[in-house]
Each structure stands twice: as C-alpha cells, then as structure tokens.
Design a protein around this nucleic acid. Structure first.
Length: 582
DNA sequence: TCTCTATGTCATGCA
DNA sequence: CATGCATGACATAGA
C-alpha cells in the first residue's frame, strides 16, 4: 500500500499508526507517539523537545506531522521540519523523482566530494560503509520476511563489485573500476525511493557484484540502501512524488518490542532525564506492574512483561522474614497488653474450656486485689507481659485512671495492674493457675510438661493452660507474621524502586543507542552519495540518481539498478513486514 | 458515629 | 498424633 493513501485518509487509523511508527523506528520514536488518545498530551512535550534542537526533533516528528498535517514522507511516514540545514535542504529539493524535471538534479552536489580526496580515502569510506552494512546484515538477517542481508564474511574491500555481464549500460564495471570522476560539478544525487529489484528485471539490471557472483537470488535478496542512506529529512522530500514505501533496513536493528516502549519516557529522558518524572511516566507505561497505570496512553505499546520483582523480592523477603523472626524472638515479646476483662468465680470454678463470649458477658469487678495478692501466682502479676512496652515504662506507668481516683492507692494500683493483664492472665488468675502465663507460653514442651506434673491440676485448669499456651504462641506467631508481611511489603516497594531505576537507565541507554544509530546512518548516507557520485558510465558521465540507485545484495555485492525496478521491488518487500505484523 | 489501625484470636494447613 | 508455626479471616479496642 502506498503511504499517500494512508496519509490522505489521515484519520485515526491503526494502519497509519503502524506505518508511522514503523517508519519512525529508526528515529527512535515509539508507537505510543501515534496513539491518538495520547497524542494531544504529548504534543506539548514534543513541541518542547523539537524546540530543543535538531537532536530532539526526530523523536516525535511522526506524531507531530500527523497532528499538524506537516510534510510527511509518503514512503517512510517521516515528517520533516521546514527548517533544514542548507546542505540538506538543497539535497532534498533536488532528490529526483519521476515527476521532477531532470535539471533539478543538477543542483545536487555530494557534500563530501572534494577534488583533493584520494582514492584511498574513498576506499576507506567504502570499507566503513560495508562494515556498517555487515553489522546491519547480522541484525536483520534473522527475519525471513525482512529484506535479506547476507553480508560477506570476508573483507569487504576484497569484494569485486562489478556490473552484471548482460547489462546494456555497462558490463563488468566494478566500483573500483568505475571511473571515479573527481569533483564533478554536475554530480547527481540519487533518489531515496529505490529499494530493491525484482528478479525478472535482470536484463535491465546494472549489478555491481563481486566477481561473477551476481546471482538473481542475491539480487532478489537485495536490500534497500536508500532508506539506510537517507536521513528522514531526505526521505521526507520524496513525499510528493514517490510511490513505494520503503522499509528502513536499519529499523531491523531495533527490536519492535523494545521500540514499543519508546515514547514520552524517551523524550523526557532525552530532554534531560528526571528520575522522578521518569518513574511517574513509567507507571503510566506499565500495564502489569500493578502500579497506577493509564493504558490509554499507549494501548498498543504496553509490554506485557514488566519485570516482576517476585523472585528477588521473595528471596529478600524470605531473608528479611527470618531476620524479622529472629529479631522478634530477641524481643521476647509475650504480647500481653492491657485488658481489664476478667472472669468471675463462677467461671473460674466451672470453666472447662475457653469460651470467647465469656469475656463479654463476664466483665466483672474481680476479686479484691488484697485477696489476690495472697495468691501465689500474684507474685507474677507485675511481670512485664506488655508486648510493646518497655519495662521501665511499665513500672513508671502507674498513673491511675480517672475512674480510680477515689480508690485507695492499693486499689488503684491493682486496678491498673488488672488492666495491664490480658484476658488469659485474668483467666489464669481466676482459675488459680499456679504459674505465670509467661512460663505457660514460653517454656519448651518438656519443661512445660514437667511443670504441669508438679502440680495437681484439674481438668479445667489443664485445659485453660493449654489454651493459654496455644493462644500465647499464636499471638506471637501473628505478630511475627504481621511483621514479616510488613517487611515483605517494604522489600517489594524497594524492589519496585530498583526496577524503576533500572528501567529508566535502560531507556536512557536506548536513547543513546538510537542517537548513535542515527549518526551512523547519516555517515552511511554520505558515503553512499560519495560512491554513487563517483560512478561513471562508459561515456564517463555520472549516473542519474533519478534513474539508478545502489543496492546492497545479500551476498555482499552492490548493484547499480534502475530505479523503476527498485521501486517495484520496494513495494513488494514493503508488504511483507506489514503482513507479518498482522 | 464512622473510619482506620493495631492487636488478639480462631481455624486451618503444613512440617 | 502432638506440637509448633504461618497465615487468612474475623473481632475488638482505641485513636
């Protein structure tokens, strides 16, 4: 499909979003940029980013163009701002197309062409170019539907790039052999639309291939160089004239899944990374982390695999749990807080088992403290069973409650002590249990059984003791459990923070990679212009960029092919990744 | 009075 | 099987 049709539709079309996104892959712009629900919010950000300079322009230009109907490349979906560096704009204006008059091509000069440039320099540049292509091949080759790059493993310079034997224009002209005119003033730049060439067009082919290796297969598997060589600005100039859409081979360097997350986050990072804002943005990105998310921001880009912190957190929490448990044990907390509930004698005499309702119905004015003080177990009443109260605090906390002001000091104290006792302590007192709850609960089983054997206890007393022990242990267990749970939550929060930091760092690195990738593309582009501009036909005249283009074949050869064939091939190959995407 | 938090307790499962 | 521990669920007190 052509880009124009989509652009004219210009509505919220998913296909258009896909296209724009794909074409902006090499620009570092994520799919989110094209999300219409998000676009409005992002426009301001993008505007700021664009204003920030050329470095920041590329990231959001697709969406910007979509929103403003700016110039958008019909092939790549890439828009370009009106202001260009002079050299770039001159190039883009002159990029030839079928509808452009040929004389426009004369405006183009390779910016790198100089009369003093030595052939060695050119070779060096060509070597660089081939190296880049090889890198590209390694990344792109894995995709069957992707344009095939079968870069030669050998030294690129050792490759003999020659024209196909049956080309009507020239035969066996390698790039080395091609007459490299010095600084031709009327050097014509090529058009960026060219991508590749169909097999059937071999008769019109002008392959620059390694010696006799120009198989049609390799030609078929050739790769668009123009998308690689031309920066988005250049591609954008073909908007009005060009037909075929051109996938960017270098886009294959970037995993789609990875690029899915490029968006506001990246932009924010590139603007000047703010960890706090980044974290907030990440939360909006994130669909699975359980954090506050806004899926409307990027419905199509939500990566389904936000790093789960379960593993790390579980390990850390488990360790924390053990530490928490041990630390808790060190506290020796018994967990007896104030509880004024007590049992009456009736219960004390007749209680067989613990009845929770008793504490509600039997709230009573217990026995006279003076009497209780005579009981042997009362010597332990003052024992600090308060779970979270320091002994000194307990000792000094003898302020009587207002209700007890009229009572005697002894009574007040007893009342207070009574309130410090737990229900089980009250029950134990009521049942005349001859040892402390602390012992009941904390003694080891053997010692506990020994203790029980020392006394003649009724069945009711034994039952209560067992209940006290059970409840006491469970109380501590509950406290440990809650502390563990709290620690787990804290560890998870810490893990989330760490992961957010890691994510922000990775995004930062990604932006840097994209930036360097763009620079590399620009370099390759200039090298392409350099090489193409120095090619000469049998009459010593340069090839017209509107009619020919260089094409990188899978076997490492470079072909000089007619643009019409390349356009057809480009259309054919453009459909593949799109179908694959669906 | 309602809500929230801390704590105790029970039931249950596991070791 | 008894015991202890862990934990979810519920109840309750108190701020």
């Amino acid at each position: 499909m052509g880009w124009e049709s989509h652009l004219t539709a210009a509505s919220a079309d998913i296909d258009l979003i896909d296209i724009l996104w794909r074409q902006d892959i090499d620009l570092g712009a994520g799919r989110e940029v094209f999300d219409y629900s998000q676009r409005q919010k992002e426009q301001d950000v993008e505007k700021e980013l664009r204003d920030g300079g050329e470095q920041d322009t590329w990231a959001g230009e697709g969406a910007e163009a979509l929103a403003r109907n700016l110039l958008v490349d019909g092939e790549t979906g890439e828009s370009f701002p009106a202001q260009f560096p002079a050299d770039i704009s001159s190039i883009t204006e002159a990029v030839p197309s079928e509808s452009e008059p040929p004389d426009l091509q004369n405006n183009l000069l390779s910016p790198l062409l100089t009369g003093t440039e030595s052939p060695f320099d050119l070779e060096q540049q060509w070597q660089d170019l081939m190296s880049i292509m090889e890198m590209q091949a390694m990344e792109v080759n894995t995709s069957a539907s992707e344009i095939l790059y079968n870069a030669p493993s050998g030294d690129p310079l050792s490759t003999n790039y020659s024209l196909a034997p049956n080309t009507p224009i020239n035969q066996n002209v390698s790039l080395h052999q091609a007459s490299l005119g010095g600084c031709s003033q009327d050097f014509l730049l090529f058009s960026p639309e060219v991508e590749s060439l169909p097999v059937a067009s071999s008769s019109t082919l002008l392959p620059l291939v390694p010696s006799n290796s120009t198989s049609l297969n390799s030609t078929f598997g050739s790769t668009n160089l123009t998308g690689l060589f031309f920066p988005p600005q250049l591609n954008g100039t073909a908007n009005d004239t060009a037909g075929p859409e051109l996938p960017d081979p270098l886009g294959g360097l970037l995993d789609e899944a990875m690029l899915d997350e490029i968006s506001l986050m990246d932009l924010a990072i590139e603007e000047g990374f703010n960890p706090v804002q980044a974290s907030q943005l990440e939360e909006e990105f994130d669909s699975d982390s359980g954090l506050s998310l806004d899926s409307s921001h990027s419905p199509s880009s939500l990566s389904s695999s936000e790093g789960s912190s379960s593993s790390s957190s579980s390990s850390s929490s488990s360790s924390a749990s053990s530490s928490a448990s041990s630390s808790f044990s060190e506290e020796g907390a018994v967990g007896y807080s104030s509880d004024s509930e007590t049992l009456d004698l009736e219960e004390a005499e007749g209680a067989v088992g613990y009845q929770p309702e008793y504490s509600k119905f039997c709230r009573m004015s217990y026995q006279d403290p003076a009497q209780l003080s005579c009981l042997p177990y009362l010597e332990h009443v003052g024992h600090n069973h308060t779970y979270n109260m320091a002994p000194s605090a307990l000792d000094s906390a003898d302020l009587p409650p207002p209700s007890a002001l009229k009572k005697g000091s002894k009574e007040k104290q007893a009342d207070f002590l009574d309130k410090q006792m737990s229900r089980d302590e009250h029950r134990a007192r009521a049942m005349k249990i001859p040892f402390t709850n602390d012992k009941i609960i904390n003694l080891p089983v053997e010692e506990f059984n020994e203790l029980l054997s020392k006394y003649q206890l009724s069945e009711a007393q034994l039952s209560l003791i067992r209940d006290i022990r059970r409840r006491g242990k469970n109380k501590m267990a509950a406290q440990n459990c809650r502390k563990r749970k709290l620690d787990t939550i804290l560890n998870l929060e810490r893990d989330v923070e760490d992961l957010q930091r890691d994510k922000a760092r990775l995004l930062r690195e990604k932006v840097e990679f994209l930036r360097s990738l763009r620079q590399m593309k620009q370099k390759v582009q200039s090298l392409y212009q350099e090489v193409f501009g120095r090619l000469r036909d049998e009459n010593g005249r340069p090839y017209s960029p509107s009619q020919y283009a260089l094409q990188y074949a899978g076997d490492g050869s470079v072909l000089l092919i007619p643009r019409t064939m390349a356009d057809q091939q480009a259309r054919r190959q453009e459909r593949k990744p799109k179908d694959r995407r669906k």
